[in-house]
Design a binder for these strands. Structure first.
Length: 258
DNA sequence: ATGGCACGCATGGCGTGA
């Protein structure tokens, strides 16, 4: 069995102890991090090495940043897109880890509907779809995980009527996301849990948002069909979000029998 | 009521996040 997880840390340095404690307590084989908010020269590699993990990362000052933390040494590591447009390396890292290919993305949040950054987000999904098309096949044992910044369905936000048309819960984003999925992914979390009210993000600004469960499901673990068929469990670690000084996201976890 | 809170920064207010 292998265990994989994804986590938007909202600053790795602010969350370093939380992440290393979580690794020690949960022993995942692969952890995908987003929003590390640290330039490569300042990345805290040593605590992960001491914990027995390999780590590859790409970040920039203050914003963005992705990392892959793994028991096995990652092979064929690459960052960003290679499609002639700006590569946006601090949002995409991919590698082969053991028998599995992993793509870890921090999809642009989009700022607000109509903003140029919202259009960039929609294009970003198209670029990602082209990357999957070019680099993999749906038969590849492939994991796509990360902060994808889209709640795909009504059951994935706390108040779908109120939030209808909001950034991260907008039909155009959902369609762009769905187009990528239709290339050959299955939502591994949804394979194991179809309840509403299963969230991975709760806004800091809403009082008692976690206890009131006013959240969004924005962080996802998807897999191609041959790999999804081997998944045995998936869950959201809500308790981590209830600890002191949390990220505004929490971890999504899945296990595979491989 | 479109607020709030957390983070990083050649900080003391601002841009960003979602």
């Amino acid at each position: 069995m292998i265990k994989v997880a994804t986590f938007n840390a909202n600053s790795l340095r602010a969350r370093l102890t939380a992440v290393t404690d979580w690794l020690a307590a949960n022993s995942p084989d692969i952890l995908a991090l987003q929003e590390t908010k640290v330039r490569d020269a300042d990345f805290p590699e040593e605590p992960f090495r001491q914990a027995g993990y390999h780590v590859v990362f790409r970040g920039e000052k203050s914003y963005k940043g992705v990392a892959l933390i793994s028991r096995d040494e990652p092979a064929d590591v690459s960052f960003g897109f290679d499609d002639g447009e700006p590569p946006d390396e601090a949002r995409l890292v991919r590698a082969r880890i053991g028998k599995v290919h992993v793509v870890n993305t921090y999809v642009p949040q989009g700022t607000s509907v109509g903003d140029s950054r919202f259009l960039y987000k929609l294009e970003w999904f198209d670029r990602l779809g082209a990357l999957f098309e070019k680099e993999y096949t749906p038969d590849t044992p492939l994991l796509w995980m990360g902060d994808l910044n889209v709640a795909p369905e009504r059951r994935d936000v706390y108040d779908p009527d109120r939030l209808a048309g909001s950034v991260c819960f907008h039909p155009e984003e959902q369609q762009a996301f769905k187009r990528v999925i239709e290339w050959g992914f299955e939502d591994v979390f949804r394979r194991h849990c179809d309840e509403k009210g299963q969230f991975s993000f709760w806004d800091y600004r809403i009082p008692q948002s976690v206890k009131r469960n006013l959240g969004w499901r924005l962080d996802h673990i998807l897999a191609t069909e041959p790999l999804a068929a081997k998944s045995r469990a998936a869950w959201i670690d809500r308790d981590e979000r209830l600890k002191p000084r949390p990220s505004d996201h929490t971890l999504v976890v899945a296990q595979f029998d491989i």
